[in-house]
Amino acid sequence: MAAPGLDRGYERHGVNKMSDSIYVENLAKSFEKIEAVAGISFTVRQGELFGFLGPNGAGKTTTINMLTGLARPDTGSIHIGGIDCTNRAKAAQHLIGVVPDESNLYPELTGFENLCFCAALYGMRKPERQTRARELMDVFDLTPAADRKFAGYSKGMKRKLTIAAGIIHRPSILFLDEPTTGIDVASARQLRQLIADLHREGTTLFLTTHYIEEAERLCGRVAFIVAGRIVRIDTVEHLVQPVQAKHVVQIACNVPINGILKKLSAAFPDSMFSAAGKDRIRVEADQPIRVGELVRFLEDQGAEVFEARRMRPSLEDVFVQITGIEADDMRREKGKRGGTT
């Protein structure tokens, strides 16, 4: 293991490479001189919804590629569903489904044909694959578009069909790489519901995302990966526990943030102030924060306060605390680069 005691979930439940859905030990991968994944170790238990969080270039997709057989690890071992597939990438592919970060179905086939073709890749016979394709079309609200070419689908519809293709053969382990990136709010909400349903039905899910609130809402346990290294693995509950007692307020105003932070710290020594974007101040304290006083102080300094909101401490706070990376920066970077590492 990379660091004893790092994965607190391990300690509570124990590790069993034969019964855990995913067992990874000292997995490493470099591309020329760049270390994409640097000796990571973790397990995902049967039926668990495991989140793999990190910024662009952290090694999320490289890890998924190694686990699914699309990339060969330099060192380390991988067991999927109890099968050692470190050097036999194909050995466990019948157990897994993969939803890549970009929809990669066939644009010239219809939605229904795409699902039937994907089912055929897993050896499903014609009547069975047609029934299953119709069933999934129905579940994903795509029946009216079943006979339309995939190329003509909207982004949200493409994501839904890509997820449907990933589960067409009823895999016991499903890898989801950034499933809600770049789609509208309604589609994202529907996809999250579908992911939750799959989890309830007993599918083991390995989810990579840069939307920390999504991971917090869906996952039982999460790993934070930064620069190819896992910096923390634990249950969401345990991770957020230390920050739950904190009181957090976010204030939106029109003053240069860096200049005002020092003044605020001097005036309110019991609170901690930090920038949360270019026009937002984040206030943290162990005691309840008196928002009125803060607003009056800012207005006295010539600031116009647009909004002051009490925040519920979240996994995002833990992520920022542990990794030093602002979640907003991560989202912006993802939007710009649409990264895949």
């Binding site: 699309l70 194909k90 897994i96 970009e102 994907c118 890749l121």
Partner: peptide, 15 residues
């Protein structure tokens, strides 16, 4: 190039 080949590589059939 358009990554649909990955789908085939993920299928449980020998290369």
């Amino acid at each position: 190039k358009n990554r649909s080949f990955e789908r085939l590589m993920l299928a449980p059939i020998p290369l």
